[in-house]
């Protein structure tokens, strides 16, 4: 199938793109990586009258590290503990996958390297993924375990910075105004002694996961002092599993604590039946994934290098 005909606009700057959105109204869609939009257009499920292409705007694809305020400068990895990683909105998943800077926060690499397949990672962008707010989007799940803010730029409003927890409102619904777009994603670098992992079960590379679990925790010895757990693909948005976090916080990480966290995660999930699996199965699965992600995150928190791959059917 071919998309319905549409007008194509190539923006020269993010400001111009925002202005085009304001001018063209709700019949316009932004084209970033296009990995969700183009298939929907080809199936004619999405039929925008105007496409505003962001791909030719210089300086929108980057990964920068910035020292944290009051922190002691850069470590030998080039990353400032307590500092911030800044991703240009059009930074491709593959650039993050292959970035040594991003790899210093292992959960970011887990996420980027596990998105779909090479072709999709070469096109899809971090900003597009968050703005799309797909319930199955990997970035929204992973970044909600880190302190993440989204910088937004509008045609008529001043630039604003929105915490990720307030940016994604519902399935396919973000806090963006009609003439606003994402310009940058800012992720706070976890403190020393913190480790994370992202694990999904996928039926094949290009499809969204059946369920996924993101865990970022801080260890002191074998005790977990702080933890963030998010569940993907089991609700209308990524779900923060607060009871599962509570089951770990301040606890020694043993089988009992892991089981309690897994059970709490299963209870927090709000999955639906679909071809990826029945709701009951997804609930059971996400608990198991959380337990495994905790175990990997804890090893990483202790400084161990652990390679992680999603589980494929």
């Amino acid at each position: 199938m071919y998309p319905r005909s549409f007008h194509y606009h190539r923006a020269k700057s993010l400001q111009e793109a925002a202005a085009m959105l304001a001018q063209l109204g709700d019949q316009a869609k932004l084209l970033a990586g296009g990995q969700s939009l183009i298939p929907l257009m080809k199936l004619r499920f999405a039929n925008p009258a105007h496409l505003v292409d962001l791909n030719f705007i210089a300086g929108t694809s980057y990964i920068h590290s910035e020292a944290g305020v009051g922190e002691g400068g850069y470590s030998e990895t080039g990353v400032s503990e307590g500092g911030v990683l800044r991703f240009g909105a059009l930074t491709r998943h593959a650039e993050i996958e292959n970035s040594a800077l991003a790899a210093t926060v292992p959960i970011l690499h887990d996420c980027a390297a596990g998105i779909a397949d090479v072709q999709i990672r070469n096109r899809g962008t971090i900003g597009g993924s968050l703005a799309e707010a797909d319930p199955s989007g990997d970035w929204a799940c992973v970044l909600s375990t880190l302190s993440t803010e989204v910088r937004c730029l509008g045609a008529s409003s001043p630039e604003r910075v929105i915490p990720l927890s307030e940016f994604i409102l519902d399935a396919y619904t973000s806090a963006l105004q009609p003439d606003e777009l994402v310009s940058e994603v800012m992720v706070k670098i976890p403190v020393k002694g913190s480790g994370g992992a992202y694990l999904a079960f996928k039926r094949s590379a290009p499809v969204y996961p059946t369920a996924s679990a993101a865990v970022q925790l801080t260890m002191e010895g074998d005790r977990c002092t702080d933890v963030a757990i998010a569940l993907g693909c089991v609700g209308l948005t990524a779900i923060k599993a607060k009871d599962a976090e509570a089951a770990l916080r301040g606890q020694t990480l043993n089988d009992k604590a892991l089981a309690a966290a897994g059970e709490a995660a299963s209870a927090a999930a709000e999955p639906q039946d679909d071809m990826r699996g029945s709701a009951d199965y997804k609930r059971a699965l996400v608990g198991a994934l959380v337990k495994r992600a905790i175990a990997i995150a804890a090893r990483r928190a202790h400084g161990e290098q652990v390679e992680v791959s999603h589980i494929y059917a």
Binding site: L43, R203, S204, A205, P206, V207, Y208, D274, M275, R276, Y312, A313
Partner: peptide, 16 residues
């Protein structure tokens, strides 16, 4: 038909 695309009908690939 609930399996009309490769998001739902999963043909085997080398990964599997």
């Amino acid at each position: 038909m609930l399996t009309s695309t490769f998001s739902d009908y999963i043909p085997i690939t080398a990964v599997n």
